[in-house]
Every structure is written in structure tokens, then in C-alpha cells.
Nucleic acid binder design. Structure first.
Lengths: 207, 207
DNA sequence: GGATTTATGGAGCGATGGTACCAAAAAAAG
DNA sequence: CTTTTTTTGGTACCATCGCTCCATAAATCC
């Protein structure tokens, strides 16, 4: 195969990679996102990434290691809107309104797999995948923790009643988002998800 | 192996089955519930069911056919509370309050796998399993349809405002229940789920 | 008892899964 | 050009997966 032109960057010695690592990683992420870890076969991976088995192991180490990288990529890129919104300098209720409506929009983009890569992954899996299950569960717990943190800030700012059960409220919105992810996977429309988000905001505690 | 005593019932001729079909089916259901379809291996199945490969195929036909039966069993037994509550002759808001709180209870029973067998199944799977994916998605849609139907009855009875978007409200509670199922799988406590259910009822439309 | 029917045990099969290995290729360094 | 370093292509490997086949066992029917 004709190697691609060198990517401007200073290369070390040795034969240059014939593919862009980031592009291949992104392609793998989408496949994992769509099919999950166990549902994505090695052969499908290297076919989609456009590389050989040797190149795969040389560049990514193993299927599991690649999945870890895919998750990281998802969180910082495709799912970056989540933490971005929590960090915006806006009203707490505005932040959560934006969180739910943006989820509705992002979960139904036609240039990406539907739903969320993390929300519904590895909830049912073989015993051999318990490490992955724990990893995914931990990611979900972290996301919920971030929401709880934001709610705590809001409480300090007087955006929430003093007696609000912060952790329960975060768990509620966590549940809602995960359920919306399942709906999206099942083919629910953007409008339908937006309606769900709107109804979900009715549960916001009265000040 | 010593065959068990005949189960009172009139048998035809031929060697009698050495196991109770229903017991084996129930054991399979639990395994599928816990690990999903692809996460459950054939060997694990027959080991848990306590039967041989021959007996398995003789009695159930195939792994996929068994899964279908397991789903039916789940819906009529372990998940029967769902339709039962929708058919109870009670106030609409009472029915949905009972639906969400019962879900919280059922999803965290210590004598069963946590969560719901249907809610989060086959949302991510290999292309070869598209039939199962569609089946599960259809089950979820049906469950949501049953809730919508109940809401429509409630609307006729004056339990809901005239302008209520029934389908959206059903989708909201569908999302919430599915999200709760994920939470349960991730180890959320019964109290936590009950809190989520309580908060979810705040979204009920004001009369 | 013999014939018939159904279930069981056990061996094994073809396909696929993820991975390892090695000689060859393509670059930089000396 | 030679050496060194890294990537690549191809092949082969071993475990697992879902499933099949066949001889045998255990019941009923005549």
C-alpha cells in the first residue's frame, strides 16, 4: 500500500503508520456506540477502521484497550456537551432545561448513532465482562455525581429550596436521561424526546 | 440418571423427561435477565438448567426460541405486576404512583436479578441480532402503549386535563421506568429508586 | 415379551472470536 | 550503503459458541 504523506508532524524513525490514529479511533467509537462492546467483532472493527490485525494490535493493544480509548473519546468529544452545560455560568434550572433538551437533540442526530454510548452499555453482559460492566456503571455514577455537584452549587445560589434532596434529584434526572437514550435507540423522534424533556422539567422543585 | 417420579399428570409413551420444563425455563429466564441474550452462553444455560444439550434442543428447539419463551414467562410472571396495575380499578394518578413505586420495589428484589429484563435488553447488539433487537424494542413500545391506553381511559374519566399530550406523558413514564431499571442494575438502593419514583410523580399534569 | 415412541448422554463439528508470530517493507540514523 | 527501528500483511492458533448426530435408556401399547 502506498503510505500517506507525512502529517506535517516530526516523525521518528521506522515505517510510518499508514492511517490516522484519530480517524480510526473515531470510527471504532461509532461502531462500539452502535453495537456495544460484545456486539462489535474484531473483524468488523478492523474493517471499519480500515487497518489490518497487525496494525490494530500495534496501535491499540487490544480490543478492550481500544474500547477504553473509545469511551474517553466519546466523553470528551461526542458527549462533551454534558459537562460543558454543567459548567456554563447560567441559572440552575436553565442548566437542567438545557441538559435535557440538548440530550434530546444529541440523541437523535442523523450523523451519529442514536442515543448515548454510556447510558445503556454493559447493563447485561457475561460474567467475563464484569470489569467493563463496573467501568460503565462507574461512568454513569460519575455523570450523576456531576449533576449532583451542579445542584449543590445551585442550592448555595438559592436556586433550589433548602430542603431539596440533591442526590435524589440528580438520580431522577440521571434516570430520565438514560431512559431517553433507550427511547432514542428504539427510534423515538426528536420531538418526542423534547416532549419527554419538557415533562421532566415539571418535576423541578418549586422554589 | 434416575428419572423423577411421574408428576401426577397423564403421560404419553416414551421415556419421561428427567426435569420439570417450567423450572428449567424459569432458571433460563433468570440467566437471560441477568446477562442478556448474547451474554448468556449455551453451556451456561444448560448448566444452570441442569440438563444436557440433547434435552435442551429436544425441549426448547434453540437458544433463540428459549429466549422468546423466557420473555413471555417474564411478562406473565416476574413482570406481571405491570399490566396488573394498569388494569386495577383505581384512580389514574394512583395507578401511576403505584406503577412507579412498585417498579422501584420489584427492580430491587433480592430474590431476583435487579432491574427489568426487557427495559434495557438488546439496545446495543451485533447486526446478526437485529431480529431480537426489533422484538425487544417492540415489547417496550407495547408497554408504553399500554400506559398510553390507561391514560386515555383516565382522560375520559376526567382524571387528566383535556389538553394533555397522552403519548408524550406515556413516553415520559416509559423513559423514567427504563432509567430506573438501569439505576437498579448499577446497584441503586430501593430507597433511592423510591425517591426517583416520587420525584417523577411531580411531573403529573395539574388538573 | 416385542414393538414403538420419546428422552438422554456424549462425542464431535463448522464457524467465529480475539490474539500471536514472523518475514517483509519503509522510514531515519550513521 | 548498512544498520536500526517501527509498521505491515499474512497466516495460523486456540478457545468458545451454538448446534447436530447417534447409540442407548426408559417409558407405553399391543
Amino acid at each position: 500500500m502506498v503510505p500517506k504523506k507525512e502529517p506535517a508532524e516530526r516523525r521518528g524513525r521506522g515505517r510510518p503508520q499508514s492511517f490516522e490514529r484519530e480517524t480510526a479511533l473515531c470510527a471504532a467509537m461509532r461502531l462500539f456506540w452502535d453495537r456495544g462492546y460484545e456486539g462489535t467483532s474484531f473483524d468488523d472493527l478492523i474493517a471499519t477502521m480500515g487497518i489490518s490485525a497487525s496494525s490494530f494490535y500495534n496501535a491499540f493493544g487490544s480490543k478492550e484497550a481500544l474500547y477504553h480509548e473509545a469511551i474517553e473519546t466519546y466523553m470528551s468529544v461526542a458527549g462533551g456537551w454534558f459537562l460543558d452545560i454543567l459548567n456554563e455560568n447560567i441559572d440552575t434550572i436553565t442548566a437542567f432545561r438545557k441538559l435535557t433538551t440538548t440530550a434530546a437533540m444529541e440523541f437523535t442526530r442523523d450523523d451519529q448513532p442514536s442515543g448515548c454510548m454510556i447510558s445503556v452499555a454493559a447493563t447485561q453482559c457475561s460474567p467475563g465482562q464484569s470489569r467493563l460492566r463496573d467501568l460503565l456503571a462507574s461512568q454513569r455514577t460519575q455523570a450523576e455525581g456531576a449533576m449532583a455537584e451542579r445542584l449543590r452549587v445551585g442550592m448555595s445560589a438559592g436556586d433550589l429550596p433548602e430542603n431539596t434532596d440533591i442526590d435524589a434529584l440528580a438520580a431522577f434526572y440521571g434516570s430520565l436521561l438514560r431512559g431517553m437514550a433507550v427511547q432514542a435507540r428504539d427510534g423515538a423522534s426528536r420531538d418526542r424526546l423534547l416532549e419527554i424533556a419538557r415533562i421532566g422539567m415539571r418535576a423541578w422543585p418549586a422554589i
